[in-house]
Design a protein around this nucleic acid. Sequence first.
DNA 1: AGACCCTTGCA
DNA 2: GCAAGGGTC
Length: 462
Amino acid sequence: MSATQLVWLRNDLRLADHPAIYEAQQQGDIALVVCLTPGQWQEHNESEAKFALREQLIDTLFLQAKSLNISLHVLHLKRFSDCAKAIPALCSEHHYQQVWWQNELPVHEAQRDDKVAQALEEGKIACQRLAPDLIVPTPVLNQQNGPFKVFTPFYKRWLQILIQQLSSPYPEPKAQSESIHSDHQSFRSKDFRDDLWPADYQAIREKLWRFCHNKEAQYDEDRDFPAVPGTSLLSPYLALGAIGPRDCLEAIMYVSQQNNRDWQASVWLKELAWRDFYKQLMGHFPDLSKSLPFKPETQQVRWNDSEQLFQAWCEGKTGFPIVDAAMRQLNQTGWMHNRLRMITASFLTKLLLIDWRKGEAYFMSKLIDGEFAANNGGWQWSASTGCDAAPYFRVFNPTRQSERFDPDGEFIKRFVPELKPLSAKEIHDPAPSVRSKIGYQAPIIDYKAARKKAISAFEDLK
DNA sequence: AGACCCTTGCA
DNA sequence: GCAAGGGTC
């Protein structure tokens, strides 16, 4: 029997824990399709690192699918709008009767999906659009049936729903009998850092389980220290969907039970809830997809246009060691520790008073794990323009943050080698004489004055 | 998911 | 001097 069901994979590049793949296979043999839309991703400022990881994941996915006699089509398109022709065309060529996918919530993605659904309908091809790829895929709503605008109550309700709906991850698809045609040419990217971010599915699963076994219990204690490998390092895989949300949940629950801990108290799970929160917000508030702030009044903030200050931030030459180390980590590795994302974002939006959208775009252009909803949510949180954001007067003191979260300057020294000779005492804010001796940038702003200016820029809005 | 400043209470 | 606690930005 040849395949009749087509599953369209987007940012859910995996076979296991995949509801569309599982459901589709109940109705017949399946084939898979991925649409490459590099022009669109470029418009979304997505990084080359993420693009390269996606290619690697598609390569290994292809092999994995092949071993189950499942075809994977890779369509080389430019923009989202090309999908509305390409998908129905693929269906008629191979006589697929029904197309499946998991919805995506940001505006461009939702429009793309609507257009494809419409085109399929016109071509008399059935289409099954499933809920988004979240731990709790159903909308989490308050008592007025509206979206939550504050995380904590969202989280409480989210947990309740999660407990009601608890289910195991969807199993991998079964092997099919028909032999398949394979029209995919391996990308085999030349300089992909496979050691940092393996694209092999076995290795990725191991990363998840090893984290849950060894680190998850200490996550709350360790996650704020950039010199400590205390975070999961799974974000690139979550962003592209190489691991599924229920896979994460299952690992948390299993390991918690082994260690006699309450899985509901997992702090890492709470972070995953933030992911659901920001993604669901995208669906409720289309403005978020249009470079608009959640708090409309913050449209009036008079941001600083200085290209010089912005460049200094991008390059890690602000003269604030922790900020510079963080930006250099981003530029050199395509990844930045979460605590540092908050510090650098607060620095850009508050102390430099530069538009959060410039930081948001720069992060996307460098991050291997760049994910629109989480990145936008994080930036709007830092800039105090967002939903349940930091209050406008909350300005991170980069020196204080550095002292608290990198006390020995261990992380700083890793990425700002010129500071290696300095002691733990002086590294967070070296004296002017020390700076000139070792050739390290003077601070590009005066902290106290900048803090005042930032607070009053927001107070002017009242 | 903060920081700062000014108390108070103690040495 | 100073830690700890509270109000304010």
